[in-house]
């Protein structure tokens, strides 16, 4: 039986980035559906590339050079996590930490929904976060914009801090999906592959949050 190619593969083929371009090409030739999809993507790509470029106001380079003498903004000494976000993340943290740590047994719905956070716990999480940021060798690069000294700065944070940095609405959506037994989350357990994806997503959000906060304050 011929393996069907995904729409993502057709999209990548359009960009010259398909893993198996010969396979995709054959599928497009053999399948009316694949051919139609490829044609739609091609037309869309053609129109996107044909969009008019914005007109630059004259003298852009001159304005940039002139602004180089402007005084630098005062550097931020402390990296602040919005307390509302940290509190929400901390509330979910207790349930999610239990979820990550369990391989076989299903966590109870109560754990995910009802964890309450004392003010002392929120303060402890914030203190941990700030201490880790201050002592991390990559934090300086991140606070400067994240592209200097090393090509890809990586801040390794423990999972509880990753969760504390994740956008609260994202975490709420994720844990709500688990609580409602969304079939995409495979009931209430995470297998190794799902945990890896979850941690990767947390890491991406954490780096983005750090860089975003630094750019905002910088």
């Amino acid at each position: 039986m011929k393996k069907r190619i995904s729409k993502a593969e057709v999209s990548a083929y359009l960009d010259g980035e398909a893993k198996n371009p010969a396979v995709v090409r054959q599928q497009i030739e053999d399948s009316h559906e694949a051919a139609r999809h490829y044609a739609e993507l091609s037309k869309l790509s053609e129109r996107l590339k044909a969009l008019p470029e914005p007109e630059l106001r004259p003298g852009f380079a001159g304005r940039v050079v002139a602004s180089l003498n402007d005084p630098l903004p005062a550097p931020a000494n402390r990296w602040r996590v919005p307390s509302a976000m940290a509190a929400a993340a901390a509330a979910i943290l207790l349930g999610v930490a239990a979820l990550i740590g369990v391989n076989d047994s299903a966590p109870s719905t109560e754990t995910l929904q009802t964890a309450s956070v004392a003010l002392s716990e929120e303060a402890a999480i914030l203190a941990d976060l700030e201490r880790h940021i201050a002592t991390s060798p990559e934090s300086d690069a991140l606070l400067s914009g994240g592209f200097f000294a090393e090509p890809e700065p990586v801040v390794e944070l423990p999972e509880d801090l990753l969760v504390a940095l994740a956008p609260s609405d994202w975490l709420e959506t994720f844990t709500a999906s688990i609580a409602t037994h969304d079939h995409r989350i495979e009931a209430t357990t995470l297998n190794d592959a799902e945990r890896d994806i979850f941690v990767q997503l947390l890491e991406e959000h954490a780096v983005e949050a750090l860089q975003g906060q630094a750019a905002h304050e910088g």
Partner: peptide, 29 residues
């Protein structure tokens, strides 16, 4: 401006355009 201010710390480990677009992307987001 940010690129200019951190010129001393730039390294050619990555493409310059990648650095520049990365900064622009962060600022836009």
């Amino acid at each position: 401006v940010r690129v200019f201010r951190y010129l001393e710390r730039l390294t050619p480990a990555a493409k310059f355009s990648t650095l520049l677009f990365g900064i622009a992307r962060n600022l836009a987001l």
